[in-house]
Design a protein around this nucleic acid. Sequence first.
DNA 1: GAAATAAAGCGTAAAAAATACGCTTATTAT
DNA 2: ATAATAAGCGTATTTTTTACGCTTTATTTC
Lengths: 247, 247
Amino acid sequence: MENQSDNYTTLSLMTKSSSTNYYKDADRLLLAVDCIIFGFDKDSLKLLLFQRKVAPFQEEWSLIGSFVKKEESVTKAAERVLKTHTGLTNIFMEELGHYGAVDRDPGDRVISMAHYALMRLQEEDKQIAEEYKAQWFEFDKLPDLVLDHQQMVQDALEKLRRKARYRPIGFELLPEKFTIPQLRLLYEVIYQRDLDRRNFRKKILSMNVLEKLEEKDKTSSRKGAFLYRFIPAKYEEMVEKGVDFVI
Amino acid sequence: MENQSDNYTTLSLMTKSSSTNYYKDADRLLLAVDCIIFGFDKDSLKLLLFQRKVAPFQEEWSLIGSFVKKEESVTKAAERVLKTHTGLTNIFMEELGHYGAVDRDPGDRVISMAHYALMRLQEEDKQIAEEYKAQWFEFDKLPDLVLDHQQMVQDALEKLRRKARYRPIGFELLPEKFTIPQLRLLYEVIYQRDLDRRNFRKKILSMNVLEKLEEKDKTSSRKGAFLYRFIPAKYEEMVEKGVDFVI
DNA sequence: GAAATAAAGCGTAAAAAATACGCTTATTAT
DNA sequence: ATAATAAGCGTATTTTTTACGCTTTATTTC
């Protein structure tokens, strides 16, 4: 399926379009995807990193990434990267933007399409990461990263903040069932500021996108807090009505 | 400066990184930039298109675009495209996103980095466009476009709307001096809905980012309306103070 | 040159949303 | 049984948004 040839001309002859040979004068470049993977674990934001396997900068900390192959879409490449390093699919992932400076990678001219993803973290995920030689870092204690990955991480956090304000992506970072205080804590971590306990509850409940369950979670308080579930259909309904989701 | 070789191996040997030959197994792809250029002319939104010069789809209507060259950044490529087709530089331009489906271009595997740009339109610009074989179309009377360009245009309009709501990019579409009613009309065109004359004025003036001039513009009413100028420094001040720009 | 016209511009009131914060409730540790 | 603690509820206050009447300034028409 994947073509391992490193000779472009040969490869070109093997594709359907080569016969007409349009665009033959254009430069051919290396295109990569890099993924900024956010994880949320109880009360802190984490980032998935791994030690680069190839030179240059071998063994240094890096975002997970790969080159885009000729026969896969950029999106598919990003999904492949995620699967390769976490074993997971069906994770919320979105384009962040391109990083295309000529000299961003001393190894060669490489343009990277950065993507960011959100996932809920549980013990099993940490073990899985280790299996795949990746590691979760506290967001505010990151090591130095290769190339322009530091910049990507910073841009991704900004995008996450902006996006989370107007779209219900925060739920991607929580387990299916969560309490209102947990949800609030998540937003406090993302925005790095306190949110009023009572007003936050009022606001989120007034949007009518949560279903209250009978169970309580008692791991973080004596009284315990009721569990809720996010109902995507109700969110759609809300959008239809023209009401905004704003936190 | 530009390398015209279509043989990757040869080209590779000529670059600084080829000696170490990192990444030699990765596929090399064609990367393009396409630009969605919005123009605003008195009271209507327009889009710049041109007739494609190369096969396939030669002579059909297309966004302006080009392949990214090995020795230029993606951003520089987008600026080059704009300059080539309008003669203009220093135009507000921003990344829209990538279009990377494997079969999006039957000519070859091409990934496109779409960018959108905003510009004020005056008579001279229309003539310039003609010189460059480009043409301004009313936004709601666009011809069929090649490839996935229709999708790009639709996505760009959505991004423009979202962005214009929270960032002062609307000013990019107006002449340096403009009246409040003109500014309102622009937003009405972008959002396709009426905005209350009096409330709009109140809101925009309360932000304190405009400087009132002594001159009046009398082209669109008997009474005439005072001209204003957008002061970027005041906008920065506003951002510093933590006040939001929201229309 | 007076009257009619039309958009620009100003102001005020009502409605809705955001914020601040006191008080009650449920549970557990002592 | 009581103290402690976070969850949850309610109410008052402030701020923002929306609706819309009225005045002003210049032009066109008669």
